[in-house]
Design a protein around this nucleic acid. Structure first.
Length: 557
RNA sequence: GGCCCGUUGGUCAAGAGGUUAAGACGACGCCCUUUCACGGCGUAAUCAUGGGUUCAAUUCCCGUACGGGUCACCA
């Protein structure tokens, strides 16, 4: 009896996959185990080209990249394009470009120019023949069968199951095509009926245990579903592709979002049936967002980031806003590893590659995308860069998103570099820039082309005082004065005009003065920078140069 | 609904069976100060809840609530 089954299975396999001649062992030979040092991690990201590059894509990429490169392993890019319905024209390039923009470096995999590496192809649609080798094998083993059920039939059993409060899906008695005879199958195929290949699961009430690297033990019921291996176009589902690819490409760690935990039983089943070793699974936390509850706005609610509602979920958002790739890395690293921030404080100038990344320190509850935190990290990160680096990055962004400003930066390169150094000399350097877009705004006063008056001088002193002050200031102004000589002069004028040299004196006895030195320096600042809140006047004056200083001030004298 | 995962301050979080329960962001206050920043100091938590195990639990176990995920020929 058993023998006949086996013969049937072989005949069925031949019928379904007439073109497949290679065997699983041929594949093993073609993609041998990698020769890597002990403990080296082989990781990957496997995004699908939907045209939308997700923050989560980067999040998982960073984990994979760190794990691989810190262990002298391999990090590769695999395009998971098994769903032709979702694929968007040009999406693969968008994806590859975005990864490049954010400085994610792959050792092998899909590139804009084609594949790079010995374990390809790295685009799943091109791996059809490979999947079919194993599909055929599973049929031979009696672990897979063709299913001709239509969408309507599937809907019908689902309804029935819902009504009976049973688990929905194709399994047990609902798997109508499980026991078709070879002749019946042949007839159906000859009649041109489309079919999918389903896994032939055992009905069972066993449980499986998976040791997840970030979550620890995960215990679940063993798979009993006849899930789809190959779709009617012969392309595998994610489940089958994942198992075949990660085995053949020799991934040691599978890093993916926690939404995959529920399909773990299928994957475990396939690894077992194919006799392969499971990779180490790392299921990462979903990116969350916090906001007022729609029903009760007084309460805050945590929810999954959504593509539709949250622009910050798209990687493109960070590019557009001019949020530096270094900042995004720094941010993600602190969200990802709870001890990164501490490490960064202790090693402010070390490259992030020095940080010993560990899976154990990963967060398992939903990580929040906190824009306040991002801003703070941005100011620190950019604050740590030298002027030249800031200049280059900023210019790079402007060339793409603010051409006019790019021109200014090029034209006034020296002045810009000097301006970027303002307030950076001491122990407590300023941290004014949080992103390139905001930098254009913040730095605008250094260029006549973008300089404008944002604050009103009249709030500081009346017109007559303004005139007197600027006349005196210009008269005594010596561009060569150092900071203290310069400020002595300001003090002197302040006194002459009847203003308090010490702000505290004015506070104590306001009736004795017309104002304080604060009003005087604010006037200077507004004249020079257009705003009352700006970096050190003396330093700014020296960036602008004597001509610009005199030109801007003489308007008020 | 079934099956999973999670729950420490406003937010992100460290942490161990017995601690003054780290740190960061945000908020507020004070200090520094010619503005704004920067920086310094300080303020704010009975670790979701009920029960059990234990000399002792926020830390271990069970239930409850709440949040999240998933139940496709999508990944």
């Amino acid at each position: 009896m058993k023998r006949i089954d086996m013969m049937d299975n072989n005949a069925l396999a031949k019928l379904l996959f007439p073109e497949v001649t290679l065997l699983p062992e041929d594949m093993e030979k073609k993609f041998p185990a990698r020769k890597l040092p002990e403990g080296a991690c082989v990781t990957r990201i496997g995004p699908s080209p939907t045209g939308f590059v997700h923050l989560g894509n980067l999040y998982n990429a960073i984990i994979g990249e760190r794990l691989a490169h810190q262990s002298q392993g391999v990090f590769y890019l695999r395009i998971e394009d098994t769903d032709n319905k979702r694929e968007v024209e040009g999406a693969v390039d968008t994806l590859i470009n975005a990864m490049a923009y954010f400085g994610v470096n792959f050792d092998e995999g899909a590139t804009a120019q084609g594949d790079n590496g010995e374990y390809g192809p790295y685009r799943q649609r091109q791996r059809k023949d490979i999947y079919h080798v194993f599909a055929k094998y599973l049929v031979e083993q009696g672990k897979a069968y063709p299913c001709f059920m239509t969408a309507e039939e599937l809907d019908a059993i689902r309804e029935e199951q819902m009504a009976n409060k049973e688990d929905p899906g194709v399994y047990g008695k609902y798997a109508k095509c499980r026991d078709m005879s070879l002749d019946e199958i042949k007839a159906a195929i000859d009649a041109g009926k489309p079919w999918v290949l389903r896994y032939k699961a055992d009905m069972n009430d066993e449980r499986i245990v998976v040791e997840d690297a970030v979550r620890g033990k995960i215990e679940m019921p063993r798979n009993f579903m006849d899930f789809v291996l190959l779709k009617s176009d012969g392309i595998p589902t994610y489940h089958f592709a994942h198992v075949v690819d990660d085995h053949l490409m020799r991934s040691t760690h599978v890093i993916r979002g926690e939404e995959w935990i529920s399909s773990l039983p299928m994957h475990v089943e396939l690894f077992t049936v194919l006799g392969w070793q499971q990779p180490i699974y790392c299921h990462t936390a979903t990116l969350m967002k916090i906001e007022p509850d729609e029903e009760d706005p007084s309460k805050l609610k945590k929810r999954k980031l959504s593509k539709r509602k949250d622009p910050e979920l798209a990687l493109a958002y960070y590019q557009q806003e001019g949020i530096s790739k270094d900042v995004v890395w720094e941010f993600l690293l602190t969200v990802l590893n709870s001890n990164y921030e501490e490490w960064r404080q202790a090693n402010p100038d070390a490259p992030y590659t020095d940080f010993p990344y560990s899976i154990e320190k990963m967060s398992i509850s939903g990580a929040l995308v906190d824009m306040d935190k991002l801003r703070d990290i941005a100011k620190d990160t950019i604050g740590r860069m030298d002027a030249q680096t800031v200049y280059e990055n900023w210019l790079g962004w402007c060339e793409e998103y603010n051409k006019d400003f790019a021109e200014l930066l090029t034209k006034y390169k020296d002045r810009t570099l000097a301006a970027l150094n303002v307030g950076k000399s001491g122990k407590k350097p300023r941290k004014d820039i949080e992103n390139w877009k905001q930098a254009c705004d913040f730095m605008s006063f250094y260029y006549d082309e973008t300089f404008k008056h944002e604050d009103n001088m009249d709030e500081q002193a009346d017109k007559e005082v303004q005139k007197q002050f600027f006349a005196k200031y210009l008269e005594s102004y010596d561009h060569a004065d150092d900071s203290s000589a310069w400020f002595d002069k300001v003090r002197k004028i302040t006194e002459e005009l009847g203003f308090a040299v010490k702000p505290k004196d004015f506070k104590k006895e306001p009736e004795k003065f017309k104002g304080s030195i604060v009003h005087i320096t604010n006037m200077l600042r507004i004249a020079l920078t257009g705003r009352a809140n700006a970096p050190d006047i003396h330093e700014v004056s020296h960036v602008l140069g004597e001509d610009m200083v005199r030109a801007r001030l003489s308007k008020w004298a």
